[in-house]
Nucleic acid binder design. Structure first.
Lengths: 233, 233
DNA sequence: CGGAGCCTTGAGATTTATCAAGGGTAGTGG
DNA sequence: CCACTACCCTTGATAAATCTCAAGGCTCCG
C-alpha cells in the first residue's frame, strides 16, 4: 500500500494497524488461495511475488497477472464470491489479511484509502486489458518484451528496481504460462533478446539493457498503470 | 440494469429517473467514446450491442469485450481517468449517461444499486480474465466457441435469447478481432462448426444447435458470469 | 555423489497467417 | 428496373510462426 497517494501520519498508523492484525507467510510455489475457495479476507501483499492463474484440467496453466508487493486482491466488497482462479506464490510471500468490514470502515473514514482501493481496481482491470491485447495481437517476442516492461515499471514505482537491474523470480516456464507460449519458444526468444543486447537474464536477476528498444518492440506505453495516481509515499 | 438483484418499486423509479435524464443514440460502427477521451459520465447501455476495443497504430484491432444491454461502463468512481481503450457501437446503441455524483448518491441510499455496480465490476473483470485464458491457451475453434457461449449465456440472462436462436450482429472480422485470429481463419473454423452442426449463422442471426457440445469444446463454465448474483427483475 | 529443477538445442509437425482473387447481397442513384 | 458500389463472405495456394517431442547439460542442494 506504500505506493498510494497522499496520506497523513494518523492515516498511515491506522493502515499499519490494520495490516498488522493478521498475516500469512506462504512458501514459494504454493497457493495463497485456491480456485473455488471463498476468500474470507482482503489480502494485501507485503512482500514477495505471486500471480493469479487458472489451471486447466489437462495441466495447462494460464497466468492472468503478476502480483507484486503493495497489490491488493480479493476486494469482494462484502460479497462471498467463489474464486474463479487461484492466487499462487512465486517466491515466498507475506500477505496481510484484512477483514472486509474493517477495510470498509477505514475507507469511509480515510478517503485516501477508498481512493487507493479504487485505484487498485482500475489498474488491475486495465492490466488485464493490456494482457488481452498482448495475447490477441502481439508476436511472441513482443509479448515477452511487454511482460518485462510491465514488471519493470511496476517494480520501479514501488521502489524495488531503482536501477536497470531487478529481481525477476519467474522461470521461463512461468513466462510461457503468462504469454501463452511454450517454454521452448520462450527460451529461443529470450536468447534472441539477449543476443540483441536488450536484456540480461540469469538466475533470478533481470537487467534491462535497452528499455527504449524494449518498449518500442512491445509498443509499451505505461499509461494503463496510471502511475500518475500513485504518488510514492 | 434490469437484470440486477432485488429492487423495490421506489428504488426502481429512482433508477429510471436517473437513466432518463440524459441519453445518447450512437449509430452502428461509430464510437461511443474514443481512446484518450476523459468520460464525463457513467454509461448504461439501454439498447444495442457494442464493444471495448483497442486500436493499434498499424490498423490491427483487438476487441476487449462485448457490451450488451444492461452493461455499465466508465464507473471511474469520481476520478477523471483517460480512456486507454475505446467503446464502439456494433449496432445502433442507446446509452444513458449518468453523472458520477448522482450514481454515487443513489448507491448510498439504495444498497441494491451499490451491489449492482459492484457486481458489474466483478463480472467485467472476471470476463477479462476469461478472455486472457481463451487467448492464452485455447485453439482457434475453442476461442470462437467460447465467444459464442459467453454471448449466448449473457443474452439469455437479460432475456434477449429465450430460444436457441439469437441476434448476433458481429461480422466475422469482428470475431477475428475478438479472438486474435485472422478473418480468413475465423471463416474456415465457422464453416467447420456449421458442418459439425454446432451452429447456424447467417446474416445477423445465430442459432446454437448444440450448446452442450459447444460448451465442451470451449471448456466453457459460466461461473465467471456469476449469474447467481444477477436475479432477473 | 545423486537428484531435481531449469535451461538449451535440434528436427519435424501443425496451426495459423498472408496474399490474392472471386462471388453474393443489399443498398443507391440514374 | 438496371447498374454500380460497398461490404461481407468464401476459396485456394503458399509462407511463417509456433508447437511437439526428444534428448542433453548445467547448477544447486541434500
Amino acid at each position: 500500500m506504500h505506493a498510494y497517494s497522499g496520506l497523513n501520519d494518523a492515516d498511515r498508523r491506522q493502515i499499519d494497524t490494520l495490516l498488522d492484525q493478521r498475516r500469512q507467510v506462504v512458501p514459494a510455489r504454493r497457493d495463497v488461495l485456491g480456485e473455488g475457495e471463498v476468500p474470507r479476507f482482503v489480502h494485501v501483499v507485503l512482500e514477495g511475488w505471486g500471480c493469479r492463474y487458472r489451471q486447466m484440467s489437462d495441466g495447462r496453466r494460464q497466468i492472468l497477472s503478476v502480483i507484486l508487493p503493495g497489490d491488493v486482491f480479493d476486494v469482494t466488497g462484502q460479497v462471498a464470491i467463489r474464486m474463479d482462479h487461484a492466487i499462487g506464490a512465486i517466491t515466498q510471500m507475506t500477505v496481510a489479511e484484512v477483514s472486509a468490514e474493517a477495510l470498509h470502515d477505514l475507507q469511509l473514514h480515510v478517503p485516501a484509502v477508498a481512493q487507493a482501493v479504487r485505484w487498485n481496481g482500475h489498474v488491475t482491470t486495465a492490466t488485464h486489458r493490456e494482457w488481452i491485447v498482448s495475447l490477441g495481437l502481439r508476436s511472441a517476442r513482443e509479448r515477452i518484451a511487454q511482460l518485462f516492461c510491465e514488471v519493470y515499471f511496476r517494480l520501479n514505482l514501488i521502489g524495488l528496481c531503482p536501477t536497470q537491474a531487478c529481481e525477476f523470480p519467474l522461470t521461463q516456464a512461468d513466462v510461457a504460462d503468462a504469454t501463452g507460449l511454450t517454454p521452448v519458444h520462450v527460451n529461443r526468444m529470450v536468447q534472441e533478446m539477449r543476443r540483441d543486447r536488450l536484456i540480461e537474464w540469469a538466475g533470478k536477476s533481470l537487467t534491462i539493457l535497452d528499455l527504449d528498444a524494449l518498449c518500442e518492440i512491445a509498443q509499451f506505453t505505461p499509461a494503463y498503470l496510471h502511475l500518475e495516481h500513485a504518488v510514492p509515499a
